[in-house]
């Protein structure tokens, strides 16, 4: 940890970064914080807990106000996937953002069922094995169709319309949100119109979701949102060969034609 703090301090001193978005210890609670060269003493409170905050979502808040600053950001595997996608969508300039990589602990990787619990370059922690687990999707795929419908409707009907899933999502960077369009989803109702509210969000996640699972952690109604979004992520890779969160390459083929503009999806099994 001391080595890590020293590394950040060096980055400050060399002018390579003008701020570092990390986590600070506040009493019992780890909370996000932007460390700056003006207050190097704050680095004493820097911590790397097994708790995840939406770092890239916070980064966007800062970048909107300070588009020219060189910033370092603490990135786990999930954060790095988010940054890759934000670059593709031209929300951040890669040359201004320095990834400071954290490998997740085995505990965290297990509780997140994370398929890539580390970023490309690691500055802290030891790489642990990825967790391959699609049992949540399989469990639903094997249900009879009607049971599947009832299952999702009963899950969606718990929704209290807090918008937490959207608010915490690093990939929800639109200026206007369809979920708030009164013509599409009547405002003022909780639960909101189901399943349209959740399916529209799921569809939006198709080319974007980087499978961090923060949405599900933020859901007061305990709706298995991540399973839903993991499914559309799979559909994207299965039918269109697109995996969001990978570095460089093509953009979301649902939004952009891409260089292979004539690409058509493989055929769907309607059974």
């Amino acid at each position: 940890m001391e080595k890590f703090k020293k590394y950040i301090k060096e980055l400050f001193e060399s002018g390579e970064i003008e701020g570092f978005l990390g986590i600070r210890k506040n009493g019992l609670h780890p909370v996000p914080h932007l460390f700056t060269p003006e207050h190097p003493e704050e680095l004493e409170t820097l911590t790397i807990p097994d708790v995840r905050y939406p770092m890239t979502e916070i980064l966007l808040t800062i970048v909107r106000k300070y588009p020219d600053k060189k910033l370092g950001i603490m990135v786990r595997g999930c954060d790095e996937r988010a940054l890759n996608e934000l670059v593709k969508n031209q929300k951040i300039l890669p040359e201004l953002i320095k990834h400071i990589g954290i490998a997740c602990s085995a505990d965290l990787a297990a509780s997140c069922r994370c398929a890539q619990p580390y970023p490309e370059e690691i500055h802290y922690g030891e790489k642990v094995a990825p967790v391959e687990d699609r049992s949540d999707i399989e469990a639903i795929d094997t249900m009879p169709q009607e049971e599947r419908f009832d299952y999702w409707m009963s899950e969606f009907s718990k929704c209290i319309k807090c918008y937490g899933c959207r608010n915490i999502c690093s990939m929800c960077f639109c200026d206007q949100c369809t979920l708030e369009d009164n013509d599409l989803i009547a405002t003022g109702q909780a639960p909101p119109a189901i399943p349209i509210f959740h399916l529209i969000r799921a569809f939006h996640m198709a080319g974007r979701c980087i499978d961090c699972g923060l949405c599900e952690e933020a859901c007061p109604a305990h709706i298995p949102l991540r399973t839903l979004y993991r499914k559309v992520r799979e559909s994207m890779s299965g039918f269109l060969g697109y995996v969001s969160g990978t570095e460089g390459g093509e953009k979301d083929p649902l939004e952009f034609l891409g260089s292979e503009g004539y690409m058509v999806p493989s055929k769907i099994d309607e059974k």
């Binding site: 209290i160 807090c162 909780a190 007061p220 305990h222």
Partner: peptide
């Protein structure tokens, strides 16, 4: 509960699960 104390409703939903 879901309107006036949503995060208590959240615990109640958990209890139901």
């Amino acid at each position: 509960t879901t309107s006036s104390h949503p995060l208590i409703a959240s615990r109640i939903m958990k209890a139901k699960e």
